[in-house]
């Protein structure tokens, strides 16, 4: 009996040890993104706009959306996440980061200190970003103003407050593969990149499972709003009957085919898409029209 107990304790320790190892932050190799000088800020501005960085990181109520002071609140089933300061301030922001630090945050969800970020930061989408876009984006973000507003702690209760557990979550849900298989045209390929990587549409338009992971088999089929109020609509053709041109026009002006006008967080998304070239809006529209009914791919 005593030996059995000892064995069980040993087994438990081993399991805990294994979980500890599996949950360790997985970072990029040191040699990747080592050169801080290869970015083009002008190209980076377009990446910044498509990726919607400012939409979440500008201070609530601020008119100047390029001051990335943070502070907006994002309620969810797991607690309320508060966007941090990612301005160039060396103390409160990310002014001391290297490109390598930035890439680890964006593509792996790991801080320079080696802590997991919560996936309210959509690194599950950004993991599909092209390396040059990351470098360009970083060179643009470095040109933006600093704010000394301190980041607020997230309001997340136990057990989700144990960040180490996110390592296990990432094992399940941090997947760099595309959801839509080989796209049939350059336009579709661009649309897939915008939807699945930069604009991270799936983060709101795809339902999540009990652990908060995106249900890839129900891709873009709509989901309850994370703050519990209302529903975020489906984009699949069985639910959305708009033409490709309607989708592109909506992304440009915010007008639905009935000339209702967008509300909620989609307003910020449209403000971004309106600044992108018309080809990008057409590419997203082509992607949306190419979705399978029911979202299974």
């Amino acid at each position: 009996m005593r030996r059995l107990l000892g064995f069980l304790i040993l087994l438990g320790l081993l399991a805990a040890g294994a979980a500890w190892m599996i949950s360790a932050p997985d970072t990029l190799p040191a040699g990747e993104f080592a050169d801080d000088t290869g970015g083009d800020p002008a190209r980076g501005q377009a990446v910044f706009t498509a990726a919607g960085c400012a939409s979440c990181h500008h201070a609530p109520g601020s008119e100047d959306k390029l001051v990335l002071a943070g502070g907006q609140r994002f309620a969810s089933d797991f607690g309320t996440f508060i966007a941090p300061n990612i301005s160039q301030d060396p103390q409160q922001g990310i002014g001391t980061w290297s490109l390598h630090d930035f890439a680890n945050a964006l593509l792996r969800g790991v801080s320079p200190e080696g802590r997991h970020y919560y996936p309210a930061f959509p690194y599950t989408s950004y993991i599909r970003m092209q390396p040059q876009d990351v470098a360009d984006l970083w060179s643009y973000i470095r040109t933006l103003p600093a704010s000394d507003a301190p980041s607020q702690p997230h309001e997340v209760g136990f057990p989700f407050s144990l960040r180490r557990g996110l390592g296990l979550w990432k094992q399940l849900y941090l997947d760099p593969s595309w959801i839509m298989g080989t796209p049939g045209s350059e336009e579709l390929k661009r649309g897939r990149y915008l939807v699945e990587a930069l604009a991270h549409c799936g983060e709101c338009h795809t339902p999540r499972d009990d652990f908060g992971g995106l249900q890839r088999e129900a891709w873009l089929t709509g989901a309850p709003a994370p703050d519990g109020k209302g529903r975020i609509p489906a984009l699949t053709p069985d639910e959305l009957s708009w033409s490709a041109e309607d989708v592109a026009y909506y992304l440009e002006t915010g007008f639905t085919p009935d000339y209702d006008s967008a509300g909620g967080h989609m307003v910020a998304v449209i403000d971004n898409f309106a600044q992108l070239p018309p080809e990008d809006r057409a590419a997203v529209a082509a992607y949306v029209k190419a979705l399978p009914e029911g979202g299974g791919m």
Binding site: G254, S261, M266
Partner: peptide
């Protein structure tokens, strides 16, 4: 102008 107002004052569906 529609969006600027909806951004702050209109709830999602």
């Amino acid at each position: 102008a529609c969006k600027a107002c909806h951004d702050s004052f209109r709830a999602p569906e």
